[in-house]
């Protein structure tokens, strides 16, 4: 990567959302929904739509990445092989895997596809990075639970670029059950529309977001004011996790981070007040740092945005 350069990427679950999204702030897009095979128009299940999605992303001058299921089973492997074949044929720039078996499968069967290892693959240590390096892995998103000091240490020792979620709902869990299906009749919303609604789970001060088979953080993880620290530690690959967000969220949050990252890399950590206003406007339950500072994922450590950390029920 050139000096001063960085990558900001995001995630899009299907072709409909991709068409509605302004990819302007981003360098790359992960295509596909990692949680559910029944997700509306999931390109992992639809080679034709995946092909079109890759074309759309590439026509806009962005890199198209394919993502894959967070917890595949044997019967999913043929489907994923078909998606990987499309990705390889259509010039996808990489594939993200959350299952270690897929690391080997991609290396053995689709060696032309660079491998990004996702957070659900549970890479916790430099020793884990070392193993994956032997499989030719190009990039790793470390486990969500890791604090930044450990992430930095892994980056220094491992020799593989790490990708960090700098904003969005942090992925916290994957299930084989969909908790939203139980509400289909009483709510009057059918699958696959259920998980496209914005659904939160609340208990006292706790908040989670449900996407049916996936659990995400309720608060938006936000590392905006800590970008200079990330950049100084050598990180250059950043993600706005927007798999369950609206196109407007994707555009506005992406633009905020693109500007802030460019400044951070130029040695200017100044943040405009409007940046916080934008993030606050798109956050339903407030902001948090995730596990960045060794605290529980719902905490916010920082000075710039204390007011946005308050619980807000809208």
């Amino acid at each position: 990567m050139e000096p001063g350069a960085f990558e900001l990427n995001t995630s899009v679950s299907n072709l409909r959302h991709l068409r509605a999204s302004d990819l302007g702030p981003y360098d790359a897009v992960y295509l596909g929904n990692i949680y559910c095979r029944r997700y509306e128009g999931n390109p992992l299940e639809r080679p034709t739509e995946l092909r079109e999605a890759i074309h759309l992303v590439r026509e806009e001058g962005r890199r198209a990445y394919l993502t894959t299921y967070a917890a595949p089973r044997n019967d999913t492997l043929p489907v994923l092989r078909a998606a990987l074949a499309v990705a390889a044929a259509e010039g996808a720039a990489a594939v993200e895997v959350h299952s270690l078996g897929l690391v080997k499968l991609v290396r053995d069967e689709f060696p032309e596809l660079p491998i990004h290892v996702g957070n659900f693959a549970n890479v916790y240590t430099d020793a884990g990075v070392e193993i994956l390096k032997g499989f030719g892995v190009a990039r790793i998103t470390p486990a969500s639970e890791l604090p930044l000091d450990e992430v930095d240490a892994i980056a220094r020792a491992g020799g593989i670029p790490l990708e960090l979620v700098v904003h969005g709902k942090l992925p916290l869990g994957v299930s084989e059950f969909c908790i939203l299906l139980d509400h289909e009749r009483t709510w009057g919303v059918p699958c696959p529309e259920l998980c496209q609604r914005e659904v939160f789970l609340r208990k006292e001060a706790w908040g989670l977001k449900s996407v049916g088979k996936g659990i995400l953080s309720g608060r938006d993880v936000c590392l905006l004011e800590h970008l200079p620290r990330l950049v100084a530690a050598g990180h250059r690959h950043f993600r706005v996790e927007a798999v369950s967000e609206s196109p407007e969220y994707r555009r506005a949050v992406g633009a905020t981070y693109r500007e802030a990252l460019a400044r951070a890399l130029a040695g200017d950590g100044w943040l405009e007040a409007r940046s916080w206003e934008t993030l606050a406007a798109h956050s339903r339950l407030g902001l948090a740092n995730g596990f960045a500072f060794g605290r529980s994922g719902m905490d916010y450590i920082g000075t710039e945005a204390p007011s946005t950390t308050e619980w807000r029920a809208r």
């Binding site: 917890a71 659900f120 916290l172 869990g173 994957v174 059950f177 994922g297 719902m298």
Partner: peptide, 18 residues
């Protein structure tokens, strides 16, 4: 459990106590 073993960071998201 609801979340698959090896794929869960829910408890530590709400509370982490070294």
């Amino acid at each position: 459990e609801f979340v698959l073993l090896g794929k869960c960071a829910m408890p530590s998201y709400v509370h982490l106590k070294p």
